[in-house]
């Protein structure tokens, strides 16, 4: 029976202290600022960091609750934003899991997987030996989570004193990092097509169906990207 090599845990923790970790901390500063602006308790926000660990869902949850809408409605909105975590967990674990090994580390690792960790695993996990990968994800996730709790608290207390343009720049790091990390990780025509189609389809879909915009843009854009790149590959191969 294959076993995980838990030296990967420490290795993953060290990876948190990289540019992506720093960028992520910037956006959690923004979350702390939002929580304060919404007169939401800091303890609740920190608990969300630990137990939800998906920033868009946390923002939606805080925002919906603070607007005085009901808990059930807020949960519905949160679970819609969380659907996107499923493909990310599939992608990270497909590269990380040891078939035949004990399963519980996978269930734990999944809790830490969100957009940034997926992007980071695309960037760094190739260099990690296979038996160390699931522990690597858990270590990276734990270290990032500790950092993001600190960022949330710091954002709660600091951004109120910060000039608005500077605070806005902190939040801007996140979209800049996401798009450039996608560029950096693009390996095939399908990847580039998916980036372009997602960005093109996203805005009109957002105007039409804001509740499910990301899911629709992802599924439509990703499927079209696959079809286009397969067609291009087939016609390309036919030519001598």
């Amino acid at each position: 029976m294959p076993r995980y090599d838990w030296r990967g845990l420490v290795r993953g923790m060290r990876m948190a202290f990289t540019i992506p970790g720093l960028v992520m901390a910037m956006s959690f500063l923004g979350f702390g600022a939002l929580v304060r602006a919404m007169i939401f308790p800091l303890k609740g926000a920190v608990a969300m960091d630990v137990f939800m660990w998906a920033l868009p869902g946390q923002v939606v949850y805080v925002d919906t609750l603070a607007r005085g809408l009901t808990l059930l409605l807020a949960l519905l909105a949160v679970t819609l934003t969380a659907v996107r975590l499923m493909p990310m967990v599939v992608l990270v674990l497909a590269q990380a899991r040891l078939p035949g090994a004990r399963r519980w580390p996978e269930y734990l690792a999944a809790h830490f997987i969100a957009a940034t960790l997926w992007v980071m695993s695309e960037m760094y996990m190739d260099a990690v030996p296979r038996p160390q990968r699931v522990p690597w994800v858990i270590g990276l996730g734990l270290a990032l989570m500790g950092g993001m709790v600190l960022s949330t608290v710091a954002g709660y207390y600091l951004t109120a004193q910060m000039p608005v343009p500077l605070a806005a720049m902190l939040v801007f790091f996140t979209p800049a990092f996401f798009i450039l990390a996608l560029f950096d990780g693009a390996r095939s025509g399908a990847d580039w097509a998916a980036i372009a189609l997602g960005a093109l389809i996203g805005p009109p879909v957002h105007l039409l169906w804001p509740e499910v915009d990301l899911l629709l843009a992802g599924v439509i854009g990703g499927t079209l990207a696959m079809l286009i790149s397969r067609k291009a590959a087939r016609t390309g191969r036919r030519r001598p």
Binding site: M169, F178, G198
Partner: peptide, 30 residues
């Protein structure tokens, strides 16, 4: 899995487009 990867990629690209074109919170101040 390649399809799942394309979906996740397009989804994150759409998220970026949404944050830039229809921002909320602090980013909306810029």
């Amino acid at each position: 899995l390649r399809w799942v990867r394309a979906v996740a990629t397009a989804l994150v690209a759409a998220l970026v487009a949404r944050m830039v074109l229809f921002p909320s919170g602090l980013l909306a101040e810029a």
